[in-house]
Amino acid sequence: MAKEATDLTTIDLFSDEKRPGRPKTNPLPRNVQIKINKRNQVKRDRSNGLKRVEFKIHHTLFEQLDQRAKAEQVSRGELIEALLIKSLASSQN
């Protein structure tokens, strides 16, 4: 019987062949990698003096922020930070 490259019903014939795709470089499962990466990101942010703030806003306000951020080519977080700084500066005067 000849070995045909497209014949996947006899998978034992292909067990020694490398499959195409990205090689696995990390032995940990993906969900563990995500947790570790998030923890490292929080540590980096903290060392850079950043603090995480979460709040809920109405959907229409969210859309307005999103549109303005896209128009100014900044992230929503950067836009909100700039608006807060501007508001606090004007209230101190």
Results as ranks from 00 to 15, higher is better:
Asn37Gly: 09
Arg19Val: 02
Lys38Pro: 00
Met1Tyr: 14
Lys51Phe: 06
Leu28Gly: 01
Leu65His: 00
Phe55Arg: 01
Leu79Arg: 06
Lys86Ser: 15
Arg19Glu: 11
Gln67Tyr: 03
Arg46Val: 07
Glu78Ala: 07
Lys43Gly: 05
Glu4Arg: 04
Phe55Ile: 00
Asp12Ile: 03
Glu63Leu: 15
Arg22Gly: 04
Leu83Gln: 00
Gln64Met: 15
Asp7Val: 01
Ala5Tyr: 09
Lys3Trp: 10
Asn31Thr: 12
Leu13Glu: 12
Val74Phe: 00
Glu54Lys: 08
Pro27Asp: 09
Thr6Asn: 07
Arg44Leu: 10
Arg19Gln: 14
Leu61Asp: 10
Val42Ala: 15
Asp16Glu: 13
Leu83Asn: 05
Arg52Lys: 09
Ala89Thr: 10
Gln41Ala: 12
Glu78Gln: 11
Asn48Gly: 06
Arg39Ile: 14
Thr6Gln: 12
Asp7Met: 09
Ser90Met: 05
Phe62Cys: 13
Ile85Asp: 14
Arg44Tyr: 06
Asp12Glu: 09
Leu28Asp: 01
Ile36Glu: 03
Lys3Asn: 07
Ala2His: 13
Lys3Gly: 05
Asp16Gln: 07
Leu83Met: 13
Ala69Val: 05
Val74Thr: 10
Gln67Phe: 10
Lys24Trp: 03
Ala5Leu: 11
Leu28His: 01
Lys86Arg: 14
Arg39Tyr: 14
Pro20Asn: 08
Pro20Val: 08
Asn48Leu: 03
Ala89Leu: 09
Leu61Asn: 15
Ile80Arg: 00
Arg30Ser: 11
Gln67Ala: 15
Leu84Asp: 08
Leu61Arg: 09
Ser15Met: 04
Val74Met: 13
Lys35Phe: 01
Ile34Val: 12
Ile80His: 00
Lys3Arg: 13
Thr25Tyr: 05
Glu72His: 11
Asp7Ile: 05
Phe14Cys: 04
Pro23Phe: 02
Arg30Met: 07
Asn48His: 03
Ala2Trp: 11
Glu54Gln: 15
Pro23Thr: 06
Asn26Ile: 06
Asp66Asn: 15
Arg52Gly: 05
Leu88Pro: 01
Met1Ala: 11
Ile57Asn: 07
Gln33Ile: 04
Gln64Tyr: 12
Leu84Ile: 08
Asn26Gln: 04
Ala69Met: 08
Leu28Phe: 01
Ala69Lys: 07
Lys18Arg: 11
Asn31Lys: 13
Val74Asn: 01
Pro27Glu: 08
Met1Val: 14
Val42Pro: 00
Ser15His: 05
Thr60Gln: 14
Ile36Tyr: 05
Asn93His: 11
Lys43Met: 06
Ser75Tyr: 00
Thr25His: 11
Phe62Ala: 14
Asn40Thr: 03
Asp16Ser: 13
Asp66His: 14
Phe62Arg: 15
Thr10Val: 08
Lys70Arg: 14
His58Lys: 13
Ala5Val: 15
Pro29Cys: 04
Lys43Leu: 05
Leu28Thr: 01
Arg22Lys: 07
Leu8Cys: 12
Gly21Lys: 01
Ser90Leu: 12
Gly49Pro: 02
Arg46Ile: 04
Asp45Leu: 10
Gln33Lys: 12
Lys86Cys: 06
Glu78Tyr: 00
